[in-house]
Design a protein around this nucleic acid. Structure first.
Lengths: 223, 223
DNA sequence: CGTCATCTTGATTACGCTCAAGCTCCGTGG
DNA sequence: CCACGGAGCTTGAGCGTAATCAAGATGACG
């Protein structure tokens, strides 16, 4: 990782409904924080590390993951441009975070932000993010506990398409990352993608770019 | 469900490390709240219902669950005596909650509690509970995504034994509930229990009561 | 003591994993 | 510009774990 150049991509607000106070905190983060550039697969923070920083994806995307002793990996979530992450709420991180591709991360000490008189708005921001993380984790539990391979992949593509503004959606992660998020193997993910493409539900222009051809069918498959 | 009689079982504090202020909120809940008795499988609240109450398990245990359109069920979590639950943080519940067996639930309107001058301490309580829920959900994701049937069952028994004060631990839920929590079928759960018992890791006196005979082995199997 | 729900066990099936090739795409250097 | 190399992706064949289907056994309760 390395210090970011003056690399000012415009960043959408995390959520349009967010209060003005929270956007002020985001601005404060911009001014007080440090920007770092991470290369693909570089670690932003590690499992069991102390958790006193707040992170924000300025550009690119990040995964949080956890390894079992024998190397099996589970990805907890993906974080995209504008997302806050790393508020694991304990004193240490239960998951590690790595860059999916080259990306720019803004990070600020929580205590410094709080000291700058933004305490209330900061709390609100942390609360909103934690609630979002909990909801997503619960959805993830549903997916992993009771959905078939096909449903998992369909759900995943559907989520991506819901959040995408463009019609041609690109996958910021490789098949292995998808598999480790969905509790499957790369081969199974690949087969399901082929199958979804074969039934004209989605269409892949290349391995990392797709468009939804039949949204209703995709939603039905995702259940 | 019916109004509880004067049924005052002593209730442990939710967490020993909790601040005095929070215990005061718990006391306030006791005084302001309504106690209701629920029979086995009775619904405490439903999926998509409004979420403006706080619930606390006074006696018994509760499950939160979610159904798919075709009837597949996933249990999100179990809540035991002393636990707060139902703070799903949105305006409606993403999961429903049902009694595992006969139980007593204390419930209070969030707004009423806040109006009683306990706002700060209430926020703390809600925060702590939400953080605990998030951590548990993340652990659950790991279990469902990457653990084998045997590891899932072992993890489950290990968790129960960690929280139990007694040596003889009793399961408040049936096999179907375990299965729906672990993302398995009752048959598989039953087979794994038999297997764990066969290898002298645990011992079942009856279907709902067990003791750990080899804690190290159980921990190793749970990974 | 009988009845019914719950749990266990057995036999078979199927979904997704493993192992093993091939293929595609993309960057690199000739 | 094209040939080469390698990582990432796809496809195929066979296998294994957990699901399904189907009986029994156990146990709780009237």
């Amino acid at each position: 990782m390395s210090l970011a150049y003056d690399f000012d991509t415009p960043v959408r607000a995390v959520q349009t409904s967010r209060s003005v106070a929270c956007n002020e905190t985001l601005d404060l983060m911009e001014r007080m924080g440090v920007r770092l550039v991470f290369a693909k697969d570089e670690e932003v923070y590690g499992q069991d590390e102390a958790a006193d920083l707040i992170y924000r994806v300025v550009k690119g995307a990040v995964r949080t993951s956890r390894l079992m002793s024998d190397g099996r990996r589970q990805i907890g979530d993906f974080h995209y441009q504008g997302d806050l992450f790393g508020l694991e709420c304990g004193d240490t991180h239960a998951f590690s975070a790595e860059a999916l591709g080259d990306c720019v991360i803004l990070m600020v000490k929580r205590s410094a932000l709080r000291a700058s008189g933004a305490a209330e708005s900061l709390d609100r921001l942390i609360w909103d993010t934690t609630v979002r993380d909990l909801r997503r984790a619960q959805e993830h539990v549903m997916l992993l506990g009771r959905k078939t391979a096909c449903e998992r992949v369909a759900s995943f593509l559907l989520n991506l398409s819901d959040n995408a503004d463009d019609d041609a959606i690109d996958l910021p992660m490789g098949r292995q990352d998808m598999a480790d998020y969905l509790g499957l193997t790369i081969e199974t993910v690949s087969r399901m993608l082929t199958q979804l493409q074969g039934s004209s539900v989605v269409e892949f222009t290349c391995a990392r770019k797709f468009r939804v051809r039949n949204p209703a069918a995709l939603a039905r498959l995702a259940d």
